[in-house]
């Protein structure tokens, strides 16, 4: 719809800023222009409402602007609708639960290790030192890295099935002679170490490392 030239005078007329011939022309115009008269009525209703309820509408505007966190929160309430506040509250709850509830649980939870098809445990990782590759002779000892919270280690040697297992408080162990004799050149073996706390809780598990005792030694 094309804007009427007199529309810009509506406010001036209602606020008594039009005088003399300009006022007469405007008044004559709205007797002839129903569009302008409708806008004039609407604007008059707005101004009347503002004038009559100014104390309620603008009481806060006339007060000095409060400062600080409370004021900032107050201004936020002006911006957000109740629904937005509800969404914000739910979001904040979820975030707080995640940060203070779930994350610490996850942080204390040890990584998960699959020891065998039916055996899955959680624990820290434990590094094996030797043997890690094929050896020319049956190793005299097996060695792994020390863990601060481990009091006891249990080593297991496999040749398809458990060949030998033993516990030690040290980070290396020599295998007994009878076990050595069972380890035949040309066969592949695997070994793994589990670390336990002083209370007997499993705290770390190494990967299962394979090595072969090569022939010709």
């Amino acid at each position: 719809m094309r804007k009427c030239l007199f529309e810009d005078q509506i406010d001036d007329y209602l606020l008594n800023r039009l005088e003399g011939p300009a006022k007469d022309r405007f008044e004559e115009h709205y007797f002839n222009c129903s569009n302008c008269f409708a806008k004039l009525q609407e604007r008059d209703e707005l101004i009347s409402s503002i004038k009559s309820r100014s104390a309620w509408l603008f009481s806060r505007e006339r007060q000095p602007e409060p400062k600080g966190v409370a004021a900032a929160l107050g201004r936020m309430t002006d911006w957000l609708t109740p629904r937005q506040w509800a969404v914000a509250a739910v979001s904040a709850t979820v975030i707080l639960f995640t940060v203070f509830g779930a994350l610490p649980l996850l942080r204390h939870q040890s990584p998960q290790f699959t020891l065998s098809e039916g055996e899955v445990v959680r624990g820290q990782s434990l590094s094996l030192i030797t043997p890690l590759i094929d050896v020319k002779a049956v190793p005299a000892y097996f060695e792994w890295a020390k863990l601060a919270n481990a009091a006891d280690y249990k080593i297991s040697i496999y040749n398809g099935e458990l060949l030998w297992s033993a516990s030690t408080t040290d980070t290396r162990i020599a295998i007994p002679e009878d076990v050595k004799r069972k380890m035949v050149a040309g066969n592949t073996y695997a070994w793994q170490v589990r670390a336990f706390s002083a209370g007997g809780t499993l705290v770390a598990v190494s990967s299962r490392v394979r090595f072969q005792v090569v022939t010709g030694n």
Binding site: D11, L15, L46, I47, I50, K51, S54, L57, F58, E61, R75, D78, W79
Partner: peptide, 13 residues
């Protein structure tokens, strides 16, 4: 919003 109310206050009231 406050910015609109403020304009209405200053201009019309």
């Amino acid at each position: 919003k406050p910015k609109f109310k403020e304009v209405l206050n200053l201009y019309y009231y």
